[in-house]
Structures are given as C-alpha cells and as structure tokens.
C-alpha cells in the first residue's frame, strides 16, 4: 500500500500478524456488541462497548425467521462505520472468501467468519492469511481453535449457542478450551505427537500451547451471554472478553443492560459490583433453552 497516511520507511509493514493480533489485544477486558442499525451502534458506544458487530439481524431473529443468513448490506455496514469511532466488525459466511474480500474493501476493522450465518462451504474455511484485515473465528474446543489459527485467525471466540440467551453452551465451550490447554501443559514432549493427532491440530501449534499454556491469540467468549453475571462468569472461566449478541437489544432496557455488562466484565471478580450492575435492568431477553433445540438448529455445530 502506498496510502499517504502511512510513513515511508522500508521497515514499515501493514497487515502483519502482530498488527492483526494486536487489535484483539487492545479489546481485552471489553464487551463487543451486536448492532443492526447506526442508532444501536451509538447506544453501544455510549454504553462502553469496546467494538460493535454490524449485522442485519441479531442471531435470535436469524433463528426465529429462518432462511439463509448472509453478509449484511454494505450500506448498513458503512452507516455503522460512519456512526461510531470504536472498531467495527462484520460477519462473513464460513468459507465465503468473496464476502470477506467485500468486507475488507469496506474497511471493517475485523471480520467474523461466523457460524451464525449459513455456511458457504461445508469443507473449507477461508484462507485468512492473504487478507490485511484480521479475522475472528468461533471454536467449540481447542482443536477447532488451533485449526482456525493455522488458517490465519487473529482472534478466537468460543461459540456458545448464539441467539438463545442460554449461557450453558458458552460455559461448555470456554471450559473445554481452557481445560484442553491445561491438559497439554502437563504432557511430556513425546506425548504431544499423539495429542496433535487427537486434536486434529498442527503439531507446531500444539507444542507452542504446551509450552506457553495459552493460545497465541486473544480468546473471547460468545453465544448466550445475556446478563452481567453471565459476562463475569465467562471472565472468571478465563475469557479475555465477551461478545454479546442478542442479549442487549432483545432486552427491555438496552442502554442500561449494555452499560451493566461492561461494568461486570471489568469487575468480574467483585460480586458486590456485579450485584450493583444487575439491579433494575428490566427484562432480560426471553431466550430459549439450548436443550430444546433439535441438533440441526444448533449453530455451534457449523464449522469443522
């Protein structure tokens, strides 16, 4: 790139891994909120969101309305970029590299290759390395997270079950990922070969996790977070931050709930602050129990 805003040094690089992963580092301890209009984006920024996810329908509506869910209209995404100063993310379908190319051309700050949309490829995910814009991808376990990182994901979010308001799957996925990481750190070097095979993950990444005890990218959690207590529990379970999808704007008082979830995420280990943040928020999203959802309607099973 020869953009006039970039300094003209031989050692300058745009879109490097460090820069892509670095933005996620700056989002840590924060809440990323789904928004479907510029007005909602304004509410989210004013409430203390660290970034917004621009989309046409929140997962709860995608779930109830059915049909194929695709990338949002570029006009909608641009109106949200114009409205707020915090980073704007947008979703592409799994494997839909052209939707990703479009989102990069719109200058979104992060692309979510998301199981919330209908997959465009049931075999391959997007090769994310050639893009200058960073990607976040969902994962239900460590092997899936490492396969996404191997494809170039610069941030991982545990999937949970989007659009339900039921936090149980989010709990399961963040617990699975962190527990599998801990298990790796206890293995001897010769055990890591078979660990890589069992995780279906690249050996080099498995060795790195065993050595460092953490993912090489930031790990957020998502899918079913609806209350300040939900957010704080995800943080106590080891998440670096929280995505809230339908939970804010499907509730009775989005402004208050959004601000309360932000406070609970920062003071996740202080029950008195979380209690205060939980007062007088009005109705939470009604929600549906994941256990009532037949398997074909579970979004977390999309992605491989």
């Amino acid at each position: 790139m020869t953009d006039s805003t970039t300094p003209g040094s031989d050692t300058t690089s745009l879109g490097s891994s460090r820069v892509k992963r670095g933005l996620a580092e700056m989002l840590k301890g924060g809440v990323i909120m789904d928004v479907v209009t510029a007005a909602q984006a304004r509410i989210a920024e004013d409430a203390g969101a660290v970034a917004v996810m621009a989309l046409e329908r929140v997962p709860a509506d995608i779930r109830s309305q059915g049909g194929v869910a695709r990338m949002s209209d570029p006009d909608l995404i641009e109106s949200i970029i114009a409205e707020v100063s915090i980073p704007v993310m947008a979703k592409a379908r799994i494997g839909h590299f052209v939707e990703a190319q479009i989102l990069q051309s719109l200058k979104v700050d992060y692309i979510d290759e998301s199981e919330v949309l209908s997959p465009a490829d049931y075999v391959n995910h997007i090769d994310k390395w050639p893009f200058s814009v960073p990607f976040v991808c969902g994962a239900t376990n460590l092997g899936e997270a490492l396969r996404r990182i191997n494809e170039g994901a610069a941030m991982i979010r545990s999937k949970g079950e989007a659009g339900t308001g039921d936090v149980s799957e989010a709990t399961k996925h963040i617990r699975t990922i962190t527990s599998e990481i801990r298990a790796l750190t206890a293995k001897t070097h010769d055990e890591l070969y078979v660990a890589a095979k069992e995780l279906q993950a690249p050996y080099d990444l498995v060795v790195e996790i065993a050595r460092t005890g953490k993912l090489p990218v930031v790990l957020f959690t998502a899918g079913g977070v609806a209350t300040p207590a939900d957010a704080a529990m995800m943080m106590q379970l080891g998440a670096d931050g929280v995505f809230v999808g339908s939970g804010v704007f499907k509730s009775g008082n989005p402004e208050a709930r959004a601000a309360a979830i932000v406070k609970a995420t920062t003071f996740f280990d202080d029950p008195s602050v979380i209690a205060d943040a939980s007062r007088g928020l009005g109705e939470a999203m009604v929600g549906i129990n994941v256990s009532d959802q037949p398997a074909p309607h579970r979004l977390a099973e999309r992605g491989w």
Binding site: S13, R18, K20, I81, K107, V108, V133
Partner: peptide, 10 residues
C-alpha cells in the same frame, strides 16, 4: 491513521 487496515509497525 484510519481503520485497522492502516495499522502498521515500523
């Protein structure tokens, strides 16, 4: 500097 696409190291 602009959006994330304009983030850089030098």
């Amino acid at each position: 500097f602009g959006s994330q696409l304009d983030s850089f190291e030098t």
